[in-house]
Computed example of a mutant assay.
Amino acid sequence: MGGTTDEWAQRLLGKPEAMLDEEERRVISGIEMGRPLARDAADVADERAEFGDRLADRVAAIGGSWGFIIAFSAVLVGWMLLNSDVLQHFGLAFDPYPYIFLNLMLSTLAAIQAPVIMMSQNRQSAKDRLAAGLDYETNLRAELDILRLHHKLDTMVLERLDALDAKLDALANPASRSP
């Protein structure tokens, strides 16, 4: 079943090559070249990721973990104890109650961390869209391969039936046989 890309597109998808979208072009090209199509979405996304994307993912992974929450809580309690009891006893508390400097640092951290986490979520959404696109390509390829197999089997069955029909005709009309 050879032919040009346009013939493949017309035969398998019922539309000319010019009307194919990018996924359909990749599927037809893969069928035409006889190569596998399936790709891992995580690998493709990692290939496309820039340094900032990987950093955002790492910050979101760390900032959204129990380890970070426990460690950060310990730092906050330590800060408050240090400035309320220990250093204040010696008159050296650099951020006494109501901990204005601590509030400034927490606000700054939240102002930086929130957009970074949103960048990571946007990247995850892009990964999900990529995975859906790759799934579509794989499903389309499988569907087209099944259609091609059906066509091949139908052709083989029809050829076989024609051969049987010819044999039956030959048995029914022995006079038409040549000596």
Rank of each mutant, 00 (worst) to 15 (best):
P36R: 15
L130P: 06
R58M: 07
D46Y: 08
V77I: 13
L13P: 11
T4Q: 05
H89D: 01
L130Q: 07
H150I: 08
M105Y: 05
E7P: 02
R148I: 13
L87N: 00
L92I: 04
G52C: 09
P174A: 02
F72V: 01
S65N: 11
A142L: 07
A9E: 11
A18K: 11
A49I: 00
H151N: 12
D165V: 00
R123V: 02
S120Y: 03
L140F: 08
A71M: 02
D128M: 12
I69F: 08
Y97V: 07
D6N: 04
W8S: 02
G91I: 05
R141F: 13
Q121F: 12
D169Q: 05
D6M: 01
P179T: 03
P98K: 03
P16N: 09
L81A: 03
R148D: 09
N103L: 03
N83K: 00
N173E: 12
A110R: 15
L130S: 08
S176N: 06
S176M: 04
D169C: 03
L161E: 11
N122Y: 14
W79V: 00
S120M: 03
S125E: 15
L153N: 05
R48K: 12
I112H: 02
R25W: 14
L81F: 01
P98I: 07
L171Y: 01
D128W: 11
N122F: 13
S176E: 13
D57C: 08
T155P: 07
M118I: 10
A126L: 09
G2C: 11
M19V: 06
A163C: 04
D128Q: 12
A131W: 12
L164D: 13
P179K: 04
E24C: 02
I146T: 15
Q88P: 14
Q124M: 04
M119L: 10
T155C: 10
R129I: 07
D43N: 13
R26A: 14
Y99H: 01
Y97E: 06
K127Y: 10
G133P: 11
T5P: 08
R35Q: 13
E143C: 10
M80I: 12
D40M: 06
A18P: 08
L104V: 13
P36K: 15
E143Q: 12
L82Y: 02
A9K: 04
L55F: 05
V75Y: 07
G67S: 10
W66H: 07
A9Y: 11
N173I: 00
Q113C: 11
